[in-house]
Nucleic acid binder design. Structure first.
Lengths: 150, 150
DNA sequence: ATTACTTTGCAAGTAGTTTGCAAAAATATT
DNA sequence: AATATTTTTGCAAACTACTTGCAAAGTAAT
């Protein structure tokens, strides 16, 4: 089988998978949503909204639509957000089988990811990887008792 | 000793402590810096820049100065930041003896803090505290090998 | 006290993101 | 399949949190 046939098959798969995911999450199936979700399925990220917009085929949708779609994906938990640089959201497909976290270089802003999930061990591993001057941010989000009642 | 004398003493202490901390971190001692740092020493936070500005005595300084001072405090690690709501930084005094993390209610945005620092245990404890639908964000920051060389 | 350097207030600017609204597309109903 | 209903989109304008340029004021060093 020639490779272009194979890659075409993959695109179809991504589109099919996107449609399935959209429906499963109660979102209607539109061209921009399919494109954005396919992109996030194909490339791992995390990407900023602007990066995603630029990666889409030209004129495939407006930047406002990218933001709207991403927010809907976050609401339905199809997508996770990371806030790695001040004031700049990064988005990536939420694959529970590949739970991971990120490290960003304070200087060049390159983002790397890792799969450890216990703090001391993580920091030791990052030191072994050559990172220096490590800090972290850990934040939890939930619904408090008061809001559960209301 | 009457209580107002006691509280006056405390204010003096905070001012003295602020001056000491500013000098120790190579920052010149100005009225806005003293006021902002004293506030962060007195109240635990985390507070947004706007909250801090509103807590300061009227006309004590400009909002731009609050941002500038807070950024300097973060650079010198006098202050830590948390990004709990999208696009809104929160600041609090960095007290290494009281390392902690935050949980914010997804609905009412009330911020609570806790001192556990191992993920599974934290989540169990938060569930015991009555929070539901818990998610977390854990991000690391460091200087990568490439940037160390450059 | 004088000089050199730093910080501040003000107003304008910027980046990232959101929103109102009419047109277009998607889904539901017949 | 055609129509009605609901949802989504593009566009432009608005918005929020934050930053910046510059002259005036304050701080620190001599």
């Amino acid at each position: 089988m020639p490779s272009h046939a194979h890659s075409h098959k993959k695109v179809i798969d991504l589109e099919a998978k996107s449609i399935e995911l959209l429906k499963a999450n109660g979102l209607s199936v539109t061209a921009p949503r399919k494109m954005i979700l396919s992109l996030l399925l194909k490339e791992h990220g995390p990407f900023s909204a602007e990066e995603i917009f630029k990666k889409l085929p030209k004129y495939s949708c407006d930047q406002a639509t990218v933001y709207r779609c991403l927010n809907q994906f976050v609401e339905t938990q199809l997508v996770n957000t990371a806030y790695l640089e001040k004031e700049l959201a990064h988005f990536e497909f939420n694959d529970p089988q590949h739970h991971h976290h990120h490290i960003i270089c304070k200087l060049c802003k390159k983002i790397d990811s890792f799969h450890d999930c216990i703090l001391d061990k993580i920091e030791t591993n990052l030191l072994k990887k050559g990172y220096k001057d490590i800090q972290h941010r850990l934040e939890f989000f939930g619904v408090c008792e008061t809001c559960q009642k209301a």
